[in-house]
Amino acid sequence: MAEPPQIQRSATTVLSGLMVVLGVAIIVRTVAAGGSPVSVGLLLGVLFVLAGGGRLFLATRR
């Protein structure tokens, strides 16, 4: 049985990775549909990627 800190660390990694994947998917969907550089989809996607990536980065720094 994994220790609680280990579970928390794994969950953080998985959820952060999921955010990045969602962000990439939003960006790809927007671009494929012909979105402009300031479209809502692109901005949201970039924010998702940054949030997920930032959390992943912090998780690896600890």
Binding site: V24, I27, V28, R29, V31, A32
Partner: peptide, 10 residues
Amino acid sequence: AGLVVLGLAT
């Protein structure tokens, strides 16, 4: 990898 994903979708 990003180019692959974007390119496949497009």
